[in-house]
């Protein structure tokens, strides 16, 4: 676990440690709690769904927006939207929101691809769905590089 902690941003490493400290059924429970805590979209996005992009690789509809804040420091904000009847997708989105929101673009781009596997859910959750979370991370990184080059 110490290895994980040294190469990941602390806020993400903490979430992974929380998952790994639990037995498998409790990890699912934790994912469920994350899904309940997925922040609602701010009004300016909720009223303008066209500003969100669908992550097509996900099993269920998931929409994502990435915003770059320049001042007082250069950080990324992430926004997700997924229907309540898709708690697993919402849970993954909430993990990434809490783990990545507020980091710099460079920090997000440096997050290793295998983060979803490190949650320790691979046995309980189908490989197909785990790939959905990897796709989410991939999409976030792509959007981050886009907004970075756009500025």
């Amino acid at each position: 676990m110490t290895e994980t902690a040294t190469e990941l941003p602390p806020q993400l490493a903490e979430i992974i440690e929380d998952f790994q400290a639990l037995e498998e059924p409790d990890r699912l429970q934790l994912l469920l709690e994350f899904s309940r805590d997925l922040p609602q979209l701010p009004g300016r996005l909720a009223d303008h769904p066209e500003l969100l992009e669908q992550v097509v690789e996900c099993q269920t509809p998931l929409f994502l927006a990435v915003e770059l804040q320049e001042e007082p420091k250069r950080i990324v904000h992430l926004f997700f939207s997924a229907p309540p009847e898709t708690p697993t997708t919402r849970g993954f989105a909430a993990v990434l929101a809490e783990g990545l929101d507020g980091l710099s673009p460079e920090e997000i781009l440096a997050v290793p691809e295998d983060v979803p596997d490190r949650l320790g859910l691979t046995r309980a959750i189908t490989p197909l769905r785990m790939r959905g979370m990897s796709a989410m991370l991939g999409r976030i990184k792509r959007k981050v590089s886009e907004v970075q080059t756009a500025t």
Binding site: Q29, L31, L32, S35, P87, T88, T89, I125, R129
Partner: peptide, 9 residues
């Protein structure tokens, strides 16, 4: 269900 957490909701 397809979604493994849906029952819990």
């Amino acid at each position: 269900d397809e979604d493994i957490l849906l029952y819990e909701t």
